[in-house]
């Protein structure tokens, strides 16, 4: 590292001081690591007393769902015997999720296939859309937004899954669904221990399911943002400090590729856990 006045502690201090002063400019202050998660209204709307404004979150949900619909519309419009490129992708996705559902739930899984498929595609597309860099200089509410980085969204999806599990479990097994909490074939005394554990484990399912996706997205985007911030901070620094920016830049590229993996993996994990919970509901009476 080449300093302007080597050996001069005073010079270095002054330089870092000016650098940090530069970073206190509003353009840097505005872009904290949490800025990307702010929900900003685009079109204010109310439904009764409830605020249902069309926000940047809504915008990216609509974009995601719109892209999925457009893709599947294009992929299934011809329905050729020998599939084209788009149709092949759609069929691979179909087969992938169908195999997942069949392997995990078994024969009963057929009626849950559309739900698991929708869930998987919705989360996958939302995760990937969130990884697109924003257009530089665009207005804040039009920045790229990761809808699945909000706990309320992921928790709602998790609750929906658990709700389906509970409703389907009771509808299929009746009160025998409660055997999920008390597996047969245990010594009587052990039930005092097992039943509370099973109940707590069941109750924690929607929390862990929702928080897992949320936390993965939150952590990934915060880390990406922090690395990006370090790049801009170092680029704003005077003299040869700028060259240091290559290190966090390389880091952010590496993290970006990790996030590409995590985005797909979390959608997969959400789908597979949904399948496992549904399988529990389908086979609760067999335990």
């Amino acid at each position: 590292m080449i300093l302007p006045r080597p050996g001069s502690a005073k010079g270095t201090d002054a330089m870092i001081g000016s650098m940090i002063e530069g970073l206190r400019t509003p353009s840097f202050q505005a872009a904290g690591p949490m800025e990307q998660f702010e929900v900003l209204p685009i079109i204010p709307l109310t439904l009764g007393n409830i605020d249902v404004s069309f926000t940047n979150s809504s915008l990216w949900m609509v974009i995601g769902v719109g892209l999925v619909i457009a893709f599947f519309f294009a992929a299934t419009s011809r329905r050729a015997l020998i599939p084209g490129r788009l149709q092949s992708v759609a069929e691979i996705l179909h087969e992938f999720v169908a195999n997942l559902v069949r392997d995990t739930i078994g024969h009963d899984g057929k009626k849950f296939f559309p739900y698991v498929f929708t869930l998987f595609i919705f989360i996958l597309v939302a995760n990937y859309l969130g990884l697109i860099p924003s257009v530089p200089g665009s207005a804040h509410q039009f920045h790229v937004f990761t809808t699945t980085s909000h706990i309320i969204v992921t928790f709602a999806l998790a609750l929906l899954t658990i709700g389906i599990v509970v409703v389907y479990g009771f509808a299929k097994n009746g009160l025998k669904f409660l055997k999920l909490f008390a597996p047969s074939g245990l010594p009587f005394a052990l039930y005092f221990l097992i039943v509370p554990i099973e109940i707590i484990s069941f109750l924690s399912r929607p929390i862990s399911l929702g928080v897992r996706l949320f936390a993965n997205m939150l952590a990934g985007h915060i880390i990406l943002k922090l690395f990006a911030m370090f790049v801009t901070m170092l680029l704003a620094a005077p003299f040869a400090f700028k060259a240091l920016a290559i290190a966090p830049f390389a880091g952010s590229v590496a993290i970006f590729f990790l996030e590409l993996l995590v985005a797909a993996l979390q959608a997969y994990v959400f789908a597979i856990l949904t399948c496992i919970y549904l399988s529990d509901a389908a086979h609760a009476a067999d335990h």
């Binding site: 929900v39 209204p41 709307l45 439904l47 409830i50 605020d51 249902v52 404004s53 069309f54 926000t55 979150s57 809504s58 949900m61 609509v62 995601g64 769902v65 999925v68 619909i69 599947f72 519309f73 992929a75 299934t76 329905r79 050729a80 015997l81 599939p83 149709q87 759609a90 069929e91 179909h94 296939f113 559309p114 739900y115 498929f117 929708t118 595609i121 919705f122 809808t147 909000h150 309320i152 969204v153 709602a156 999806l157």
Partner: peptide
């Protein structure tokens, strides 16, 4: 509320289209 509303709307539309149109078509193909 806004997020939940739009989530329900978009997810519902996607589910409806998937279950009634796209997936049966792909499955049929």
């Amino acid at each position: 509320p806004s997020q939940l509303f739009w989530l329900a709307l978009t997810f519902g539309v996607l589910y409806w289209l998937m279950s009634t149109y796209f997936l049966p078509r792909i499955g049929a193909a």
